[in-house]
Design a protein around this nucleic acid. Sequence first.
DNA 1: CGACCATTTGATATGGATCAAGCGATGTGG
DNA 2: CCACATCGCTTGATCCATATCAAATGGTCG
Lengths: 217, 217
Amino acid sequence: MLTTAAFQSSISGRRVGSISNRSMEMFGTVMLYGSDVEIYGQEEPADHFYKVITGAVRSYKVLSDGRRQIGAFYMPDDIFGLEIGDKHAYSSETVCQTRILVIKRSSLLNLLASDKNTALQLWAIAAKEMQRAQNHSLMLIKTAPERVATFLLEIANDVSGEVDLPMKRRDIADYLGLTIETLARTLSLLEKSGIIERSAGRRIRLRSRRALNSMTA
Amino acid sequence: MLTTAAFQSSISGRRVGSISNRSMEMFGTVMLYGSDVEIYGQEEPADHFYKVITGAVRSYKVLSDGRRQIGAFYMPDDIFGLEIGDKHAYSSETVCQTRILVIKRSSLLNLLASDKNTALQLWAIAAKEMQRAQNHSLMLIKTAPERVATFLLEIANDVSGEVDLPMKRRDIADYLGLTIETLARTLSLLEKSGIIERSAGRRIRLRSRRALNSMTA
DNA sequence: CGACCATTTGATATGGATCAAGCGATGTGG
DNA sequence: CCACATCGCTTGATCCATATCAAATGGTCG
């Protein structure tokens, strides 16, 4: 049990665990959410874990005056909502129509008591998430072009070099700690210099990963 | 075993685990480090955990051009270096003379195999660290006064309202994603407005936590 | 006392924010 | 099927918070 198909932490692309879909489904239910639907709110009791099947999720916090920081986008196979404590620290919403596996925390915790290996994996997931969060801090001290380049490489870990962004500019901007205007300008700049190519606003082709990489800082 | 004295995650002040000093010492050795000494470097094999006994530690990453982001300061009773994987993701150094309990990863992992509760605690520590990192991202989208106010409240969780900073301005600046000049100016501003008071540069008295809190955003 | 390093203060420059307008796609009702 | 409203995105002009450059002050230790 809890052994076969690995799930990935998509934005960074590294595999971090090995709880199979099949076994996890024994503990949860797949739910279909519309676009921009709240999955849970900050400070709400945290009695479930979640795993993205298709679609995308943003996890965020807002400051009193409305500034919003998106801490992570969760893509297919990513697990989220596993922070410790009885309250969620962040809110989370779907970015587009999204299928999510919802797992009762209590049932996973039960399993955990009987299977020490699962506990190790929980640690692995949390540790991975920790690294993601740490990396994001690094992102936020970079310049605008550096942030955008880093972002494009983060989401384009499939080989094709073609990205289909599920999220709007506002989301990306809030993830990168920039305004949508600066983001748009930076993308246009990358396009003018031939590093990327855009068919539609949300569809971006990376023409030179090398160039992007060298901008990454 | 692994039950009594809780250890705190000092910068945020919340208790996150309950592995006693006594039992942990069975697995490790206390080492005395001088100031500004490297404990481990980014990319080095990670075969130990660490717990600060006295002093302070900074964990950081540097970008290619030298910009440095300090992800966390670890204060007495904080545990660090528990990221998953065989390589450390961050580097860490002492901020001042520091006493550290060094624990072999393998010995803790052994214990873990026999004690499922310990595994849960590892998860708890990692999850706590994750929240710390996420919070830090929030920090980095704030204005300079907001960052400084947040920082002062973070480190001054003792009742007295008196803080003795172990770290230099450069460290604080790199933690807050500001320059030392902006940091100094902001501190002077807070002093002029009577919110803080300084005897020496490193010794700061918080005259109005309320005022600081309201600046926090 | 003098040298050195940490910190503060001052003057100026600049990257990204803000304010404002244009453009393009998508959808709706007449 | 077209006119028009709406929404998401881009582009343009200006402003401002913080960085940068430079110098003064303060603190510590031989």
